[in-house]
Write a protein that binds this DNA or RNA. Structure first.
Lengths: 119, 119
DNA sequence: ACTCTGGATCGACGAGTGTCAATATTGAGG
DNA sequence: CCTCAATATTGACACTCGTCGATCCAGAGT
């Protein structure tokens, strides 16, 4: 007799990988590949709704957000799903399904990489 | 009898304005307007060529770059001009014409704003 | 099995964007 | 004034992207 009327709990947080990724933006040693990598990240955040989505995920105290708590962004549900997929494909967030709900969290190392944009 | 065979000199650097702009990305207090502001910046850097261009400008020891030194990016001259305009319209760089040449530099406060993306 | 709910996917449409060739503009120098 | 070099602008084309309605899929509970 499961009483799963409330949503399941989160896993404990993991270590940050501290991925180097790229030299800072204001560095002369920025290869074309680096530029493509960084542009992909920037492009993923180049839409207001995706910035809001990422912010909601990144700022949540639990470290993750249920999609069901992401309403009221002014767009329909398929559009939200579409943008979450963009963020996923860009490697900025990861998703996990637990029961009926899907939870998103910031992918490991991403915030560190963002902090390393400038030297 | 001007002997302007070499290019004119740069002006001394100015103060940074330290514009606050927006709370960090991983903050819960991120309004829709903040999201639009940040998305506009990200969108401007959402193209590899523009990342390269911005990097060339931001990493130059003189603090500015002549467009004539921006060759070999794999695209034609009108395209380079087009992307520079995008960076200008986004407020990331400013341009100044001195003689025949046009010089680009990072707009004041932009690097600080980038450093403030994460808390 | 059937149903209900949360979320992803598909197909389509309009708006936006990168690229280039051609042309315009700006300033320097004769 | 005329020409030349450095950038910017324009127009056109193909392609990408954001959005939505409709549909599909996966789990849960009865």
């Amino acid at each position: 007799m499961s009483k799963l009327k409330d949503r399941p709990l989160a896993e404990p947080d993991r270590e940050e990988d501290a991925v180097p990724c790229c030299p800072p933006l204001d560095s002369p040693d920025l290869s074309r590949e680096d530029a493509e990598t960084m542009a992909a990240m920037f492009k993923a955040l180049g839409e207001p709704i995706r910035v809001l989505l990422f912010s909601r995920v990144a700022s949540h105290p639990d470290g993750e957000v249920c999609v069901c708590d992401l309403g009221d962004l002014g767009v329909g549900q398929p559009t939200v799903s579409h943008h979450l997929k963009k963020l996923r494909d860009a490697g900025l967030v990861v998703s996990e399904r637990r029961g009926t709900w899907v939870y998103y969290r910031v992918a490991p190392g991403v915030l560190a990489r963002m902090g390393a944009i400038t030297r």
